[in-house]
Design a protein around this nucleic acid. Structure first.
Lengths: 214, 214
DNA sequence: TATTCCGATAGTGAC
DNA sequence: GTCACTATCGGAATGAG
C-alpha cells in the first residue's frame, strides 16, 4: 500500500478502475486523489497522467527535475495543466469548507523540494496542518510556506520565465526539514510537536470564531 | 522516593526505624539495604552509618572521593568495614542461591566510578544481570566487571597501599558507559538491550543446567 | 522528503 | 552515573505480482 511507486501506478491506471475512496476526479491530463495521509483538514494530490502519445514517458514524470530538464516548454504546459486542475479543486474545497465549517481559509498548492515517492505530485491542502496524520517535524516543515522546502506552484511556473532552471533536488533541502518548529500563522517557536499541534488547533479555532459570524 | 539523598537519610536513621522491606541488616558501622531497583537477581547496598563520634561527617561520606581525601587511614578502615559487611552478606546470598535455585554463582562487590546518588554505597549483586529493572546501556555498563566503571572492592582497597590515590570521579567514566554492549560471560557484542537481555537469560539458564546436578 | 515498528538517545522533573 | 515520562532521532522493513 504505502510503497514508493504507488502514485505511478495510479497515474498509469484507467481512472475508472481506481477506487472512489482514492480518486477524487480526473481530466485528460491529470488525476486528483485524496492524500492517503492528510496533513491538513483537506489534502489532495494532483498527478500528471501517463500518456503514450505525449512528450513525457512514465520515467520522465518521476519528479520535478526529470520533467523540467526533459523539455522546458512541454514542462511549462504540463505544470500549467496541474495548476488548472488544482484551481478547479480549490473551488470544491472552498465549497466544502463553507459547507462543513461555515467559513473558508487559505489553500496551499505546491511541490515538495525533495519528495520520497516517485511520480510528480502537486500537493493541494488547506492551510491549517490540523490532522492526526501530522506527526513529526518533517511533516510540518515540508509544508511550511516560509521555509523553502514547499515550492508554491506559481514560484515553479515563474522559473520558466527565467533563462536558467534550478537543479533539483538541491542537497540543502534536507536541512530545511530540521529547522526549529515555528507557527506559520504567528511565527511562534515551539520545542516539540505536541505543543505545536495544540497551538495550531488554537489558531484554527480562533480563526473559526473570527470568521464564522461573517 | 527515588530522590538523590535517600541513601543519606537511611544512613542517618536509627536502623530500627527503617522498614524491613528496605533494611536487610545493620551493625555498628554499616547498614545493608535491598537495592530498590535490583539489576540482578540479588542486589544489595552496604552503606557506612553516620556517626557523630567518628572521623567522618555526613558530607565527608558523600562519595569515594570525599572519603579517601578526608583521611587515608580512616578511609581504609571505613571501606574495610564495608567489605566485612559485604562478606557476611555474601554468605547469606549464597545460602539463598542454593535455597532458591540449587546452585550458587559469582557475586560482585564494588563501587560505581561516578555515582548519581549521594552517600557512599557499596554494591553487592549476583553476577547475572537478569532483572526487569536492568533496562538500559548505562545500567548494564555500570556493572560490567571488565569495563572500569565498576570498581571492585579489592581494587579500591589496594589503592591504599599505593603512594598516591586516584582523583575521583574521573571525567573519562562518562564515556565508559557508552561502550558497546558485550556479554560479561562470553564477550559477545549485541546491538541492543532486548537482545542482550535474552542472551544473558540464556547464559544464566545454561549455567543453571550445568551447575544444578552437582 | 511514503509509513510503521523498534529501539536508542536526550531533556525534564521529581521533593 | 537515581527513576520515569515524554519526545526526538535513527535505522530497517515494507508491498505486489
Amino acid at each position: 500500500m504505502a510503497n514508493l511507486t504507488i502514485l505511478r501506478t495510479y497515474a498509469q491506471k484507467d481512472p475508472s478502475r481506481i477506487s472512489e475512496s482514492i480518486l477524487f476526479r480526473h481530466d485528460e491530463a491529470t488525476i486528483t486523489i485524496f492524500d492517503a495521509y492528510p496533513k491538513s483538514i483537506f489534502h489532495f494530490l494532483v498527478l500528471p497522467r501517463v500518456d503514450a502519445s505525449g512528450p513525457f514517458t512514465v520515467t520522465d514524470l518521476a519528479n520535478l527535475h526529470s520533467v523540467i530538464y526533459k523539455n522546458k516548454e512541454d514542462a511549462r504546459k504540463l505544470i500549467q495543466k496541474l495548476k488548472d486542475a488544482s484551481e478547479a479543486l480549490k473551488v470544491d474545497i472552498e465549497a466544502e469548507m463553507i459547507n462543513r465549517y461555515g467559513f473558508k481559509w487559505d489553500i496551499w498548492t505546491g511541490f515538495h523540494g525533495s519528495p520520497s515517492m516517485v511520480h510528480l505530485h502537486l500537493h493541494v491542502l488547506s492551510a491549517d496542518m490540523c490532522s492526526e496524520r501530522m506527526k513529526n517535524k518533517k511533516h510540518y516543515n515540508s509544508f511550511h510556506p516560509e521555509l523553502g522546502f514547499f515550492l508554491d506552484i506559481d514560484t515553479v511556473l515563474s522559473w520558466f520565465d527565467e533563462t536558467s532552471l534550478p537543479i533539483l533536488p538541491s542537497p540543502s533541502y534536507e536541512k530545511l526539514l530540521k529547522t526549529p518548529l515555528s507557527c506559520f500563522h504567528c511565527g511562534k517557536e515551539t520545542s516539540n510537536i505536541p505543543t505545536l499541534k495544540r497551538h495550531l488547533q488554537e489558531e484554527w479555532d480562533m480563526k473559526a470564531t473570527r470568521e464564522k459570524p461573517k
